[in-house]
C-alpha cells in the first residue's frame, strides 16, 4: 500500500516538475519557429530592380543538381520584349520538390544569383504533381530572400 503511494507520488512529482519547466515544442501553426538566415527551404527565382528576371536559363543548376530535380528550357526573347536582363531567358523552370534534397548546390552554381533557397519549408500537397514548382510559382514565393 505504502509502496504504491510512493510510486504514485514520484510519478506525479515528475509530471508537476515538468509543468513548470520551459517547453521544447511550439504551438504550430499559431506559433512558428525562427530559422537560421541560411536555412535552405523552397526555391525562388529572383528579379532585378527593373523587374527583369535574373535567370538566363543557362542550365548550370540543372547540371549541378545531384537529385536531377531541376529542368530548365531556355529561349530567346523577342526583340524589344526582354523577359530577363539579357535576350536569353528560361521559358521553363521546374523544381521537383519531392526529388529535391535541398542541398543548395543550384544556388551556389547560379552565375546570376537568380535561384535562391528561401527559409520557407511548408511543403505539402495532395498530389505529386503539385509538388513540382513551375516558374510562375518560383517567381512568386511566399517568403522572399
Amino acid at each position: 500500500m505504502f509502496k504504491t503511494v510512493k510510486a504514485l507520488a514520484k510519478g506525479l512529482g515528475t509530471t508537476f516538475k515538468a509543468l513548470t519547466e520551459p517547453r521544447d515544442t511550439i504551438a504550430y501553426p499559431e506559433k512558428r519557429r525562427e530559422y537560421a538566415p541560411r536555412f535552405r527551404g523552397k526555391h525562388m527565382l529572383a528579379k532585378d530592380e527593373d523587374g527583369h528576371e535574373l535567370c538566363v536559363g543557362c542550365g548550370l543548376c540543372e547540371a549541378v543538381c545531384p537529385a536531377n530535380a531541376i529542368r530548365v528550357v531556355a529561349a530567346e526573347a523577342e526583340p524589344g520584349k526582354p523577359i530577363s536582363w539579357t535576350d536569353r531567358y528560361s521559358v521553363d523552370y521546374e523544381v521537383d520538390l519531392i526529388r529535391c534534397i535541398f542541398c543548395g548546390m543550384c544556388e551556389e552554381a547560379c552565375p546570376t544569383n537568380a535561384v535562391r533557397l528561401t527559409p520557407f519549408n511548408e511543403l505539402a500537397a495532395y498530389s505529386r504533381l503539385d509538388m513540382i514548382a513551375d516558374k510562375e510559382e518560383l517567381l512568386h514565393p511566399p517568403v522572399r530572400k
Binding site: G59, A63, A74, A75, E76, R88
Partner: peptide
Amino acid sequence: YRFKARPWN
C-alpha cells in the same frame, strides 16, 4: 540551335 539546349542536357 540558338539557346535551344546546353551540351550537358
